[in-house]
């Protein structure tokens, strides 16, 4: 599946300052691996040593938090928008 990934400011040193990347993958886990192939090192920023997503990283598919979907196994469709967003304070 071909999806668009929105890259947060904190990761753009790894994407040559590009705010979006086109990527292919059937689910989030595959997208993270694909990102790491085009931007080596990005996976280590997103996932801890155990391979799980770090606790301050949020992934959204078309505006829905993947923790309300199937987490890293969330299935993707052509044209989906995947955003990576750091945790935010406020109120």
């Amino acid at each position: 599946m071909s999806v668009t990934v929105l890259i947060p400011g904190a990761l753009r040193k790894l994407t040559n300052d590009s705010p979006t990347l086109e990527c292919t993958g059937a689910n989030i886990a595959e997208v993270i691996d694909a990102l790491d192939r085009s931007c080596p090192g990005i996976k280590a920023r997103l996932c801890g040593e155990n391979g799980e997503l770090r606790r301050f990283v949020n992934f959204y598919v078309n505006s829905e938090d993947i923790r309300f979907l199937q987490g890293r196994e969330t299935q993707l469709h052509d044209g989906d928008e995947v955003s990576i967003v750091p945790a935010i304070a406020g109120g």
């Binding site: 949020n58 955003s83 304070a89 406020g90």
Partner: peptide, 29 residues
């Protein structure tokens, strides 16, 4: 609110604005 916050995080990355609860959060809090 969580959806608003996600949108703003993306706006903050795109426009050079000072978002009090995003890029200014270390000072704000």
């Amino acid at each position: 609110y969580d959806q608003v916050n996600r949108l703003c995080s993306e706006v903050a990355d795109r426009h050079g604005w000072g978002f009090v609860n995003i890029n200014l959060r270390p000072y704000y809090s």
